[in-house]
Design a protein around this nucleic acid. Structure first.
Length: 140
DNA sequence: GCCAACGTTGGC
DNA sequence: GCCAACGTTGGC
């Protein structure tokens, strides 16, 4: 199982919106970046991901699970663009802010820190565990 | 609201 | 195939 991070502007698609979809989950659509798409093509059902709010909040707020592997993005006519479906698993007990992540030496190599513009990115197991610990949240 | 970083596009 | 111009993202 691999770990990922999905970034969203809460004004466009928030953690509340994601949770409201429940077990059915929802397409992670609208990605128009090859790197991000390629990461989604690598995802398998059951992979876990962080749900990150960009802009004002800048915090990891939830854990999601991949519930459908890459398929054409229904919001695009262009068949180059694909997406996975994800469903909410649990909320962070304490959201973990970008400041906290930057302050932790274990996390300085995170893509979130290194390439802040990439909207879908891989997370290492160590990073996963460390961020869940910071958020007092069950990593499983 | 600004700007740096990055990705994409199109002319040559 | 290079690179300038432009658009977008996201932190500050």
């Amino acid at each position: 199982m691999r770990y990922w991070l999905f970034k969203s502007e809460p004004s466009t698609w928030s953690w509340d919106d994601q949770q409201a979809k429940g077990e059915a989950g929802e397409e992670w659509d609208g990605v128009r970046n090859y790197q991000a798409r390629n990461f989604m093509r690598d995802m398998k059902i059951g992979d876990r991901g962080f749900f990150y709010h960009s802009q004002k909040e800048k915090s990891v707020v939830g854990i999601v699970e991949v519930c459908a592997e890459a398929h054409p993005d229904s919001t695009s006519e262009d068949d180059r663009w694909e997406c996975v479906d994800i469903k909410a698993v649990r909320s962070f007990v304490t959201p973990v802010s970008l400041d906290q992540i930057k302050a932790d030496p274990q996390l300085e190599e995170m893509v979130l820190v290194r390439n802040s513009r990439l909207s879908v990115q891989p997370v290492s197991e160590l990073e996963w565990t460390a961020i869940c610990a910071l958020g007092q949240t069950d990593p499983g």
